[in-house]
Design a protein around this nucleic acid. Structure first.
Lengths: 238, 238
DNA sequence: AAGTGGTCTAGACCACGTG
DNA sequence: ACGTGGTCTAGACCACTTG
């Protein structure tokens, strides 16, 4: 190994080692920035660089006025996905309060890439649903679902008491979409994501683009989800 | 929207907007830090905070002595995965130079979590293979594969001219493992990851833990891969 | 030599919570 | 009031490339 030449990275590595050692356990407070400055004979700025690495790597969270605390890794909630299921249906029977909230929706023309996948002309219509999902009332993911409008006539009638899109599709349209593929990426949150998910730190998110087809065969749904993977396990079943 | 109160984030947002505008196209150089300092009437440090956000979000890459350049997003290479395939087999027939390199291997006792999944006692043995994968000679992923030793007797004999684990399994043992589930996370690279993948920046990685069983039914393989998702598309087929 | 990004020092001031 | 983290200023010095 040939790295870790800068001071702030050495400090970060040292602290990570101590956390792994057990010198600091989950929930413990790290020494204050001033104490670390004294300990390493350096200044605010360098110490903060080290700590921001710990934050980015998910080891600690900081709270203004309080300190930096070793994150408890809550043996992440499973958040399952497979060819035949949406999000909500997977957590049934688990002792986790799962909730999907419809933030907004609109009927609109498809974007070019949506039209391409959904096999639509640009003048046709799609429904665009923005859903925020919570586990134990903690915001966990943001998703955008785009479906062909003529597959779900009168959809707005069923959005009033929204619980789950797959529930609506199943109960009112007898449609159970079939996921064909997903594309996975790791991304940093935009400011809007940070805001909506109440991300206190600089956590990378899992972005999953999913494509699903109608049981009768034609393309049906295009979905983009951004998920906090530090707080939940995103499980894919084959 | 209610965010973006700090100066460096405003600068970052401004630059991102300009990139989206087309003011700066892929490959273009951004104004130098000094120029940005002048433009925004601020100093080195704040400008660098803004730029590090652009780096983290994957918009730009910086080169010492040269400048900051808008990243060309190379319409990422597809890197496919499904129940029945490993990595290598998916890229056949594509005009991409894909290569897997066996970095090291060892025969050892399983770790507790490995023993649990692989249904082994702690005194039994596993093979541990560390593989680095390249696309067009650019390092793309690091993976650790752990398999039960008694399923693959004399495995070391076949490691000399390593090309693909699934090829060895198929040709010498007539085994085609079946992936049962994967767990996806977004993580920041460790220093070692940064080093091995030659990551010039602070890019989040996709971490995928996969579990596969032997065709006869018993657990067979446990794999952890860390993948650059800024340079490739990780596609999951259902 | 001059310009670029990269690291570090030193200090001011603010926002937040009570060690 | 004091200590905590958060932001910003100002400047030094280094490493790298040739704008």
């Amino acid at each position: 190994m040939s790295m870790s030449d800068t001071f702030h990275l050495k400090i970060a590595e040292f602290l990570i080692t101590q956390i792994n050692n057990g010198t600091y356990a989950c929930g413990d407070r790290l020494p204050s920035e001033n104490e670390l400055c004294a300990q390493f004979q350096t200044n605010h700025h360098v110490v903060r660089l080290a700590i921001s690495r710990l934050i980015n790597m998910g080891w600690v969270a900081t709270y203004q006025g309080k300190g930096s605390f070793v994150k408890s890794r809550p043996e992440a909630f499973p958040y399952s996905l497979s060819a035949k299921t949406g999000f909500s249906s997977n957590l049934k029977g688990r002792p986790l309060a799962h909730r999907g909230q419809l933030m907004q929706w609109e009927k609109r023309h498809p974007m070019p890439h949506e039209a391409r996948y959904l096999d639509l002309e640009m003048h046709e219509y799609v429904y665009d649903l923005r859903i925020k999902r919570f586990i134990n009332e903690q915001p966990m993911s943001l998703s955008t679902t785009v479906i062909r409008a003529h597959d779900v006539p009168d959809l707005p009638d069923f959005l009033a008491d929204f619980q789950s899109l797959y529930k609506i599709l199943s109960e009112h349209y007898q449609i159970r979409p079939i996921r064909t593929k997903s594309i996975v990426q790791a991304i940093m949150p935009t400011l809007k994501d940070t805001d909506l998910l109440h991300l206190p730190e600089n956590v990378p998110l899992v972005k999953i683009e999913s494509f699903a087809r109608h049981p009768s065969g034609h393309p049906f749904e295009y979905n983009v989800s951004k998920i906090r993977s530090d707080m939940c396990r995103y499980v894919i079943d084959f």
